[in-house]
């Protein structure tokens, strides 16, 4: 197997005195779609923040394409090809839809994604390009958040709870669009509370429990029971 594109080695993360992650090891290979599941507070979002540089680690805890990036700032990590679709969308309220997307493209990495490509993927955004991002519906805002991350033409894209707070029909639209997004060789980490959605799109799964990896394996090989144990810590 080739060298992993993203690799986490004994990754710890702290919020002040509180430790949120304990020795996470993970190797992600190019083109993989990996699901990260776990209960509330298991450390999924902290993991996303650590990879994207919003939480600083020691250098060797995070490697991207063989480079130690654990101590880099989020903007430096972004230039190296990691993009995050943050939990709760977090669009910039002072910016229009198009401005949000343009800002996503600020890192200027070459690749297939451009304003036009995002508008082709989500035509509704083109109609609303000059509206304030806050005037959009939740689902449309999620499209902007995804488009904004794609504009960076990342090598690794992190999706943090993209179905949270959205109507099922919207979730379906977004998940239906996902293969088209990731299909171009992009590597993706999908954090989800909705386990079935996560397993549907992924080839491999990691389950977190209280800051530790409690289960990992190919999606086809893990059983429901294993997941339940890994998820809750006890057999149901």
């Amino acid at each position: 197997m080739s060298d992993p594109i993203l690799s986490l080695t004994k990754l710890d993360a702290h919020y002040g005195d509180f430790q949120a992650l304990y020795g996470i090891d993970m190797d992600i290979h190019t083109g993989e779609v990996v699901a990260i599941i776990g209960a509330n507070g298991a450390g999924k979002s902290t993991l996303m923040r650590s990879i994207s540089g919003l939480i600083r680690n020691t250098p060797d805890q995070v490697h991207l394409n063989g480079e130690a990036i654990g101590t880099l700032r989020a903007d430096q990590v972004a230039y190296r090809g990691v993009a995050l679709v943050p939990e709760g969308r977090q669009l910039f309220p002072s910016l229009s839809v198009e401005e949000n997307l343009l800002l996503g493209g600020k890192v200027g990495r070459p690749g297939p994604w451009s304003l036009d490509a995002v508008y082709d993927l989500f035509p509704v955004l083109k109609e609303r390009r000059s509206q304030a991002s806050t005037s959009l519906s939740g689902g449309q805002q999620q499209m902007v958040a995804i488009g904004r991350a794609l504009m960076a033409n990342p090598e690794v894209i992190l999706f943090d709870e993209i179905s949270l707070g959205l109507a099922p029909v919207i979730i379906k639209t977004i998940y239906d669009a996902l293969p088209g997004i990731i299909g171009g060789g992009m590597t993706a980490l999908v954090v989800e509370q909705d386990i079935s959605k996560a397993l549907e799109v992924s080839s491999r799964v990691f389950c977190l429990q209280e800051g530790r990896v409690s289960l990992s394996g190919k999606t086809d090989h893990v059983t429901r029971d294993q997941i339940t144990v890994a998820y809750f810590g006890v057999a149901a």
Binding site: S52, L54, R73, A74, D75, A78, L84, P86, F92, V107
Partner: peptide, 8 residues
């Protein structure tokens, strides 16, 4: 989030 967009 601005930092995630590559703004230092």
């Amino acid at each position: 989030i601005a930092q995630l967009m590559g703004l230092n």
